[in-house]
Amino acid sequence: MPGRLLWLGVKGFRETIGAVDGDRCRMAPTCSAYSLQAIETHGFFMGILMTVDRLLHEMDEMELAPVVMVHGDARFSDPVSANDFWWNNAGQLDKQSFMSNLATQEP
């Protein structure tokens, strides 16, 4: 229930203030979309922690994260799975794309 209320709060922000304020977040997904995903995936408490973490770590993440194109704009990829991999097994698997490519390569 608290998670649902928090989710509705973020959703309300996205559709009112966010819609007027414009799309200013340079990350992919945007911070509000990230927050919704974090709350949906991990609930109220971890959702808050991960949302705050996202707001705090944007600056240096832009130096480290891979760039992806979203609707023609260059964004810095920073999905939920990139920030919960150290305690969430499902996220850990998502982060292994690099190592999945360690297989033999064909010419």
Partner: peptide, 9 residues
Amino acid sequence: GGNIYSAIG
């Protein structure tokens, strides 16, 4: 709390 989580992460 987020600051601690973020530092560990």
